[in-house]
């Protein structure tokens, strides 16, 4: 990120007069940086707004919306943890996300392996069928699925939510099968000749080889499942089963006038997402690119 002018300075070790062209170039760079950073910060105002107001009292917030608090307070955080079962919601979300994503990815990976293992009329038919499933929007099956889960007693249970998320296995399958097809098939063939069974080949050869795409898919699906609002809102009605997104949604009704309290629960809900983003940004980007290529 160092500009060329700086490198000239360090090379010679002394200040050298810049040519007019270099000066103009440097000025342009500075102007561009200032403009872009200003736009970035303007776009980030909503984030600043919700974070800074969690440290204010309601009265302070009404008179001073974007500035620093007159008196910093952590009372909002204390209230939030006392009044709302936030930890419970986190645990619910964690359970749903871990099981949902694990099953999705496992089913998708196993299916992709079954697909590349053998090419026959049967597997091509399944490939075509799965393409149909890939195109069908979730809304098209929502009503019968709600009935089905209601008959099975799965509505308003975390297990029922996990079952709903299993549909994501089709997306995982498409991402993984594309990657698997690029692997040299000789590796599988060789292992088979050496006497390894299909399961053994899957665990000790295929899985290690597809680890990059698995990471991508896991990160991507984790984001989708953690953030889901529609399915959770339809299927979960008990307050002790709410996921964190639902909890924030319900907090609006609860704190209609107490804005700092709402902001506090939002910030608490976004904190894990932010940490996840910092740690996994690289894979989120690779998932975004891979997912968009698949369409």
């Amino acid at each position: 990120m160092s500009s060329p002018t700086i490198s000239i300075k360090s090379e010679t070790g002394e200040k050298r007069a810049l040519s007019p062209m270099q000066k103009a170039k440097r000025r342009r760079l500075i102007v561009k940086s200032v403009v872009v950073l200003a736009i970035t910060l303007i776009c980030a105002i909503p984030l600043w707004y919700i974070v800074i107001n969690t440290f204010k009292t309601t009265g302070d917030m009404q008179t001073n919306q974007l500035g620093f608090p007159k008196k910093w307070t952590l009372a909002n955080y204390k209230d939030a943890f006392e009044n709302i079962p936030i930890l419970r919601s986190f645990v619910n979300t964690l359970i749903v996300t871990v099981f949902g994503v694990a099953f999705q990815v496992l089913i998708g990976a196993v299916a992709a392996y079954g697909m590349i293992l053998r090419k026959s009329v049967f597997t091509s038919a399944i490939g075509a069928i799965l393409l149909v499933a890939f195109v069908v929007p979730g809304q098209a099956t929502l009503i019968p699925l709600y009935q089905m889960e209601s008959k099975a007693g799965l509505v308003n249970t975390l297990a029922g939510l996990v079952v709903m998320y299993l549909g994501g296995a089709v997306f995982c399958y498409f991402l993984i099968v594309g990657y698997m097809r690029s692997l040299p098939f000789e590796l599988i063939e060789a292992a088979r000749i050496d006497g390894a069974g299909p399961f053994r080949i899957f665990w000790s050869i295929v899985i290690p080889l597809i680890r990059p795409i698995l990471t991508t898919v896991v990160v991507f699906q984790t984001m989708g499942t953690w953030n889901d609002f529609m399915t959770a809102n339809i299927f979960i009605s008990s307050s002790n089963l709410r996921t964190i997104v639902l909890q924030v949604y319900n907090a609006v009704g609860q704190f209609s006038t107490d804005w700092p309290s709402f902001m506090t629960i939002t910030v608490i809900a976004l904190l894990p997402v932010f940490i996840f983003f910092i740690l996994c940004q690289k894979w989120i980007v690779s998932g975004l690119v891979a997912g968009s290529v698949k369409g």
């Binding site: 496992l106 089913i107 998708g108 196993v110 299916a111 392996y113 079954g114 697909m115 293992l117 053998r118 026959s120 049967f122 597997t123 399944i126 069928i129 799965l130 149909v132 499933a133 069908v136 098209a140 099956t141 009503i143 019968p144 699925l145 089905m148 079952v163 709903m164 299993l166 549909g167 296995a169 089709v170 399958y173 299909p198 899957f202």
Partner: peptide, 22 residues
């Protein structure tokens, strides 16, 4: 047959979560 066993879970997902409700 082996490839069928590996494809079975996603077939179940397809039938239960896509085909029948559709």
């Amino acid at each position: 047959l082996t490839s069928f066993w590996f494809l079975l879970p996603i077939l179940a997902v397809f039938v239960i979560l896509f085909a029948v409700p559709l």
